[in-house]
Design a protein around this nucleic acid. Structure first.
Lengths: 150, 150
DNA sequence: TATATTATATTGTAAATGCAACAAAAATTG
DNA sequence: CAATTTTTGTTGCATTTACAATATAATATA
């Protein structure tokens, strides 16, 4: 069943590619949309959590987010309760951009799921959710330098 | 159902991340394993098809493949019937590496699909296959400069 | 409570990524 | 069959990506 992970890879790369091209219109460069979307949906989230959520290297996230800040899409605010955290919030410009990101995502969603019944979609989501939780442990383990045996 | 594409993205990034780390052991750098696997499974394939198959930019594929050749994992051979094509074949070293790649992929597969029944797996594959074919058109369209309306 | 460990964020550096532009062979078209 | 368009491959350049190393605050441990 190796094909399952391959299909997932192909789909992910295709959509990422499409989004990156389409979001240039907003001056968002490669990858940035991922972070902006999540910050808009979860204002106050910190960078570390965001990286973990998206499954991307911490330092990659750091740079993409810094750039979002420089461009004025988001703001970093000190967390007074925990001084090593910086909470992330969308700016007005960021919220504006988010509307477009959402429209694009909805459209891609429609294209992707064309011909699937509601039952199919629910089943697919449930199965993917399971796969994702199955893999999270290994991802964190390997990122931290752990060695899997096979 | 936006969550479906998000789950797919998370899973893909997590596995890609894991594979990239684990294949350093073979001196394969980021992304290279994708191409090597396909070349081993489909000897004689050309670069352009490979990029399309994997859903990656043509020039990115070109460079990853060139590097595989320099490192001795694959060979490029002129196609006598069509002089602008270069057919790709694994070397002995490449085939050797492929055994390891396969072992790793099988293991990741096991982890990913733990807790799914055979029926689940079949359903998942079928649904993902459908999604992938649904999106291929848009990917090619947008890569070639087409503008989607939404 | 002092010390060690963990969590979060940042920066230096090397490498991959992807767009633009180009070249050449092949296929299509008028 | 000549001209145009498409296919395949390459290179220059700007940017992202990710590993390593560093810093500092917070938490755990002895």
């Amino acid at each position: 069943m190796k094909e399952i992970l391959r299909e997932i890879g192909m789909i992910a790369r295709a959509f990422d590619s499409i989004s990156n091209i389409e979001f240039k219109e907003l001056d968002l460069t490669k990858g940035q949309y991922l972070y902006l979307v999540r910050i808009c949906e979860e204002p106050g989230i910190i960078q570390e959590k965001l990286a973990e959520m998206i499954k991307v290297d911490r330092t990659t996230a750091a740079r993409a987010i810094s750039k979002l800040e420089i461009q004025g899409f988001i703001e970093k605010k000190k967390d007074e309760d925990n001084k090593k955290n910086k909470k992330l919030y969308p700016s007005e410009k960021g919220r504006e951009a988010y509307l477009f990101l959402k429209r694009e995502a909805d459209y891609s969603d429609q294209v992707a799921l064309a011909g699937l019944s509601n039952k199919d979609k629910e089943a697919l989501l449930k199965l993917l959710h399971k796969v994702r939780t199955n893999i999270e442990g290994d991802w964190e383990f390997v990122k931290k330098g752990g060695k899997r045996n096979y």
